[in-house]
C-alpha cells in the first residue's frame, strides 16, 4: 500500500517543484487531495485533460501541488472560472476545490447558480467550519456556540447546510463525507466526477489549529474522533428521529439524478441556431 501511494504521489504531484506544502501537520486537506488523486487514477483520466480550479484559503493551495491544468482564482470565484473553462473546452474534466468560506460566504451565490445551471463539473468543498488561513474567524458553517477569533463569546449565527443548498438547487449529484471516512470519500469523488452535470462533494475536514484548539479538540485525532462519532450514513437516517439527528453529519450520497447538463442543453441551442436560416430578429437594415 505504502509503495502504491508513493507511486501515485510521484505520478500526480509536483513533488519536485513546490514542496514542502503550507498546510499544518495533521491537516485534513492532505486526505482530501489523496482521495482526489486515487479517484482520478481509478478513473484513468489523462492529466492533460483534467483542470483543477480552486479559490482562496488553505484548500486553495491544492492546485499548486497537483500536476494538472491548475487554476488558483480569487476568493469565492472558482466556480465562475470553471464555468468558462468547461463551456469552452468540453474535453476537460473540471474539478473545483473550495473551502467553506469560499463556497458559501463570498461565493455562495456562484455555488447555488452553478448547481442550478448544472454545468458538467465537480465541486469539492473542504468544510473545516472556520477561516483557517486568516487566523480562525467564523464561517457560515461554524456550528452554533463555537468559539472562534471573531466569536470570542460564542457563535450566535446558525450554520449553512452546504449540501442541502446543492440539493435544493437540483445539482445532479450531491454527497457528504468526512476526512475520517477516507475510503468512502474516494468512492464519492469518483462517482461525482463520473456523473454528468454539476456534482458537489462536501468534506468535513479538521482544522485542529484554528477550530479544534478553541473548541476542545486541539489535535487531529480528537477532531477525527468527533467526525467518527457523529457521522451517520444516509441509509441509516430513515430509521432515526429528527431529534436524534441533531448535531450529526449525514454522510453518503444525498442526491443523484440524471439531468441534462448545461453543456448538453447548449449544444441543442447551437443546433437550433444553425438551423435557422433567417435571423428571427435581424438588425434593421435597408437597401443602400
Amino acid at each position: 500500500m505504502a509503495e502504491g501511494m508513493t507511486g501515485l504521489v510521484h505520478k500526480y504531484l509536483r513533488h519536485d517543484k513546490k514542496f514542502p506544502h503550507i498546510w499544518c501537520p495533521g491537516c485534513g486537506n492532505g486526505i482530501v487531495l489523496g482521495s482526489l488523486i486515487r479517484a482520478i487514477d481509478r478513473l484513468g483520466l489523462d492529466k492533460n485533460k483534467v483542470a483543477l480550479v480552486s479559490g482562496i484559503g488553505c484548500s486553495g493551495r491544492m492546485t499548486t501541488y497537483a500536476d494538472f491544468n491548475t487554476l488558483h482564482t480569487p476568493h469565492g470565484r472558482a466556480l465562475t472560472f470553471a464555468t468558462g473553462l468547461k463551456l469552452s473546452r468540453e474535453d476537460l474534466t473540471v474539478i473545483v476545490i473550495m473551502g467553506d468560506g469560499d463556497a458559501t460566504a463570498i461565493g455562495g451565490n456562484h455555488y447555488i447558480h452553478a448547481a442550478r445551471r448544472n454545468v458538467d463539473m465537480t465541486a469539492i468543498i473542504v468544510n473545516n467550519q472556520v477561516y483557517g488561513m486568516t487566523g480562525g474567524q467564523y464561517s457560515p458553517t461554524t456550528p452554533y456556540g463555537a468559539m472562534t477569533t471573531t466569536t470570542p463569546y460564542g457563535m450566535v449565527e446558525h450554520a449553512f447546510d452546504i449540501s442541502a443548498l446543492a440539493v435544493a438547487a437540483e445539482a445532479s449529484y450531491v454527497a457528504r463525507c468526512t476526512v475520517y471516512h477516507a475510503a468512502l470519500l474516494d468512492q464519492l469523488i469518483e462517482s461525482a466526477i463520473r456523473r454528468k452535470g454539476f456534482s458537489s462533494v462536501e468534506v468535513l475536514s479538521n482544522c485542529h489549529i484554528q477550530f479544534g484548539r478553541r473548541n476542545r479538540m486541539a489535535s487531529p485525532v480528537k477532531m477525527l474522533e468527533w467526525f467518527k462519532e457523529n457521522a451517520v450514513r444516509m441509509h441509516a437516517t430513515s430509521k432515526m428521529k429528527p431529534e436524534e439527528l441533531q448535531g450529526k453529519f449525514i454522510i453518503g450520497v444525498l442526491a443523484d439524478s440524471e439531468r441534462p447538463s448545461y453543456n448538453d442543453e447548449y449544444e441543442k441551442v447551437r443546433e437550433k441556431a444553425r438551423g435557422i436560416s433567417v435571423e428571427p430578429k435581424p438588425p434593421a437594415r435597408f437597401e443602400g
Partner: peptide
C-alpha cells in the same frame, strides 16, 4: 470570471 476561464 467565466470570460477569463474561457480565455484560459
Amino acid at each position: 470570471g467565466a470570460v477569463i476561464g474561457a480565455s484560459l
